[in-house]
Simulated assay, not measured.
Amino acid sequence: MVSYQLVIDCAAPERMARFWADALRYTVEPPPGGFDTWRDYWRSLGVPEDELGEGDGSDSIVDPEGYGPRIWFQQVPEGKVVKNRFHLDVKVGGKREDVPLETRKARVDAEVERLIQAGASIVRVLSQPGVDHYAVAMVDPEGNEFDVV
């Protein structure tokens, strides 16, 4: 069996973990047993204080159902400068074969509004007359692109 986690470089891991936990309906991963915070855990392993970043160290999220990958937000010093080569599609609309376009559009628009409240911004709407597709391109609080479909 192959196991993996998704790692996303960022400036503010805790903020990104909270945003994406909300966006994906994940939970912020609790620290290992016996530790009040992730900072306490990393200190116990000998990680130097100047490498721990700020806050309590909550920088990873997990799927509460156990199906999706763990996602770790890794703090890096450089900011994002170019378009992502990899992005997530947040799928809320439903399958074309089962759900009419207008219903999918309404579901996507509702999710877009929820994500705007969480800190995302709209880049553009992906829709053309006569094409059975609707999506909204967005960016997270640090400018990483994703689509709501």
Rank of each mutant, 00 (worst) to 15 (best):
W20C: 02
V7D: 03
V148K: 13
G143P: 10
E111T: 10
E102N: 02
G130H: 00
R124K: 14
S121N: 15
P77M: 10
A12Q: 13
E51T: 02
E145K: 14
E51S: 13
Y67W: 10
A106D: 00
F86R: 15
P31M: 12
S58F: 14
D56L: 05
R85H: 09
E51Q: 15
R85T: 14
F19T: 05
G79K: 13
I8C: 06
V92M: 06
P100H: 10
W72I: 08
G130Y: 05
W42T: 13
Y67R: 10
A135Y: 02
S44G: 09
G46L: 09
V99W: 07
A11R: 15
P77R: 07
V62I: 15
T103E: 15
V123G: 00
P48K: 03
F73I: 06
E65D: 11
P64H: 11
G143S: 12
L52K: 12
P64N: 11
R25T: 06
G94N: 01
A17V: 01
F73A: 04
R104Q: 00
V125S: 05
E65R: 10
G143H: 11
G93T: 01
F73Q: 09
E49C: 00
Q128H: 03
E14Y: 13
D50W: 02
R124W: 01
L101Q: 00
A17P: 03
A137R: 13
D22L: 12
V82A: 12
K105A: 04
E78S: 07
D50F: 05
M1F: 04
E65Y: 05
Q75F: 07
M1T: 05
E102H: 12
P69E: 06
D140L: 09
P77L: 09
H133G: 08
V148C: 08
V81K: 14
S127E: 15
G53D: 03
Q74V: 04
I61F: 05
D98P: 03
E54P: 00
W42I: 03
E97R: 14
V148E: 11
I122R: 05
E145M: 13
D63K: 05
D59W: 08
A23E: 00
G34L: 15
G53Y: 02
V62G: 02
W72A: 01
P31G: 06
K91S: 07
L101A: 01
T27Y: 08
G79P: 06
P13L: 06
T27G: 10
G46P: 02
V131N: 06
A11V: 12
V82N: 06
V131F: 08
A135L: 07
D59L: 06
F19D: 04
S58Q: 14
Q74W: 08
K95S: 11
F73G: 08
L101K: 14
Q75I: 03
E111C: 13
D59T: 09
D89I: 08
W38G: 11
L52M: 12
D132C: 09
R104W: 00
E51N: 14
E49L: 00
D98K: 11
L101C: 01
A120Y: 02
D63G: 09
V47P: 06
W38F: 13
K95N: 12
A11G: 14
P32G: 01
D132G: 08
F86Q: 12
A21R: 10
G46H: 09
K95Y: 08
R114I: 07
H87I: 00
P48L: 06
E111P: 00
G57I: 07
D50E: 14
E102A: 12
F35V: 01
F86P: 02
D59R: 14
S60I: 03
